[in-house]
Computed example of a mutant assay.
Amino acid sequence: MTTTHLLYLHGFRSSPQSNKARILADYVGARHSRVRWWCPQLPPSPREAAALIAEGIASWPRQTMAVVGSSLGGYYASWVAQLARCKSVMINPAVNPARDLEKYIGEQSSWHDPAEHFFFRPEYIDELRQLDTRAMTPAAPEMVLIAQGDEVLNWNEMSERYPHALQLVQEGGDHALSNFEEYLDRVDEFLALA
């Protein structure tokens, strides 16, 4: 089954302007012009982010859609994959953001526009917990790209979180997966982009 609709979810403090989002958008646009691409700006509230995503994909064909997510977007991507029962690709995914993001409660700046600020509220931690799919068996095939050199998240936790996934684990690397371009063909093959 080919993928005709592709959703990309960025990470915490990130945006559709992230390097990986732009690289994948350019790749899909150049090679798979028939694929519908959507990379929304996610609000800081996980509940609002989930509502935005669910509304945006409501009319998408479940059999031919897929989701890619990086960091916190990877956590959301696992939730989307359960909701839509679709293929997913996680890039250095957040495994337990309810634990990891507690220290970021308060005012934050956007990574791609430091002048843009938002407030990460205490109630967002519970909202994150409500989207946790760790106890669920994958609803569709999963791929996870993991850098052992991730300076933000523990690569062992990522690997243990996705035992059923096709795991591409690289030595070294970083949280941004700066060499993401090297994985584009593998992602394309896994998703069978139309």
Rank of each mutant, 00 (worst) to 15 (best):
T3M: 01
A192E: 08
E116C: 13
A58N: 15
V152F: 10
V144R: 07
P97E: 07
F180C: 08
A147G: 08
G69Q: 04
A139G: 05
H10G: 00
G73I: 02
P43E: 07
P97F: 03
G73Q: 04
D113P: 09
G106C: 15
N156H: 15
P93Y: 04
I105F: 10
V68D: 03
P46G: 04
R134Y: 15
D185G: 11
A21P: 00
N154G: 12
W111T: 12
Y104A: 12
S59N: 06
L6N: 02
A165N: 07
E55V: 15
N19I: 15
D174V: 01
S14H: 03
K20R: 06
Q170F: 05
L166Q: 09
Y124L: 09
Y162G: 10
E107Q: 09
A25L: 08
G149I: 00
D100T: 15
P122C: 08
P44N: 08
K20E: 01
T4D: 14
P61W: 00
G74V: 07
S88R: 11
W111K: 15
P93F: 02
I53F: 00
G69Y: 09
Q130K: 13
V67N: 00
G11A: 04
T64C: 10
P97L: 09
Q130M: 10
R129P: 03
S71M: 05
R13F: 08
S159D: 13
Y104P: 09
Q82A: 08
C39M: 06
R34L: 13
M158Q: 14
G106S: 11
L177T: 12
G11E: 04
